[in-house]
Simulated assay, not measured.
Amino acid sequence: MPTIAYFGPRGTFTEQAALGFTEQAALGGDADLVPHTTIPAAVGALRAGEADFACVPVENSVEGAVSATMDTLAAGEPVVAVAEHVLPIRFSVLVRPGATAADVRSVASHPHALAQVQRWLAATLPAATQVVSSSTAAAAVGVADGEHDAAVTAPVAIGHYPLQALATDVADEADARTRFLLLARPGALPEPTGADRTSVLAVVAHRPGELSALLSELALRGINLSRIESRPRRNHFGEYRFYLDFDGHVAEERVGDALAALHRRSQLVRFLGSYPKADGSGSPAPEANRDADYHESARWIAGLREGEHA
């Protein structure tokens, strides 16, 4: 049975995402889930061979990129994403058994969770003091221990703690979602499906036009860029790493050609994986950028080099 290290503790959305990954065919429908206190610790367990996979959040539609994940992917031994899972973010508000809304004077959660239920809290628990916890699950532990009166948590938390739901399906934004990655040590990549995403990070020279030139390598090959984020380079003030997600799989000629160009242009490129998109949306190559087009042009160039000028 494979082991998945995940950003815990138990009862978080990352645990829910890890459970979602276990349903994928590659994991055989089952896995041993092991919580870790931080994202670097979960990925560290993978790098050390203590786990077969690591499950980490990478971006939220309301709060944006998860900087701890981005920084962890940039440092240390390489790891690659082999799958993604997009989880709708709907919260449960948990209290001690028998408690009502009138009993709630404090409500705790992770700051990202509190930010996503502000309207609900203002309408339902306007007098409650909001308390920041290290995670939604830690907030649930605080309620169970009598430190807080209510916790905004992932729905899975109610199965781990002796609490009851004051409310469920809570969210200010009906379409709030978080994308999670399943990471593995480098090895055989998932086969291309025609609905794939490739992730890389790149560092470019600190000169005018360098980022534009980098992105043009994707556009010239008909590759759709779906996400770009920047993070500062530690010990290099004023310099940044750029994280790119784009359509396609490294096994495709256009993507391989683009990655080779990024490698030539950049000070550093780290491949972060090619994997199926969670939504299954297709990523077909446009005309002149299909594999057959690359193969035909390669044959033509080979002929020219051998003196065939037809």
Score class of each variant (00 low, 15 high):
residue 25 A to P: 08
residue 274 S to M: 00
residue 227 R to M: 14
residue 212 S to C: 11
residue 108 A to K: 08
residue 107 V to A: 09
residue 87 L to C: 03
residue 211 L to D: 11
residue 184 A to R: 13
residue 209 G to N: 04
residue 207 R to W: 09
residue 71 D to P: 01
residue 310 A to T: 05
residue 195 A to E: 13
residue 239 E to N: 03
residue 216 S to T: 15
residue 13 F to V: 05
residue 149 D to G: 09
residue 236 H to R: 15
residue 45 A to Y: 07
residue 300 W to L: 15
residue 286 P to T: 13
residue 124 T to E: 14
residue 138 A to N: 13
residue 33 L to V: 05
residue 118 Q to D: 05
residue 279 D to R: 06
residue 201 L to H: 13
residue 75 A to K: 11
residue 60 N to K: 11
residue 46 L to R: 07
residue 164 Q to A: 15
residue 180 F to Y: 15
residue 185 R to M: 14
residue 113 A to L: 07
residue 95 V to A: 06
residue 47 R to S: 10
residue 119 R to E: 12
residue 109 S to Q: 07
residue 296 E to I: 04
residue 113 A to I: 00
residue 100 T to Y: 01
residue 280 G to Y: 09
residue 93 V to P: 02
residue 212 S to K: 04
residue 264 R to L: 12
residue 264 R to K: 11
residue 33 L to C: 02
residue 153 T to Q: 03
residue 214 L to N: 09
residue 272 L to R: 01
residue 280 G to M: 06
residue 83 A to I: 01
residue 230 S to V: 07
residue 187 G to V: 12
residue 220 L to V: 14
residue 168 T to P: 09
residue 2 P to I: 05
residue 247 D to G: 07
residue 215 L to H: 01
residue 234 R to S: 11
residue 35 P to H: 10
residue 166 L to A: 06
residue 203 V to N: 12
residue 262 L to V: 06
residue 266 S to N: 09
residue 45 A to G: 09
residue 228 I to S: 05
residue 194 G to F: 06
residue 192 P to F: 00
residue 43 V to D: 01
residue 310 A to P: 00
residue 149 D to Q: 07
residue 157 A to G: 04
residue 108 A to E: 04
residue 252 E to V: 02
residue 69 T to W: 09
residue 253 E to Y: 05
residue 1 M to L: 05
residue 175 D to H: 13
residue 36 H to F: 15
residue 22 T to Q: 02
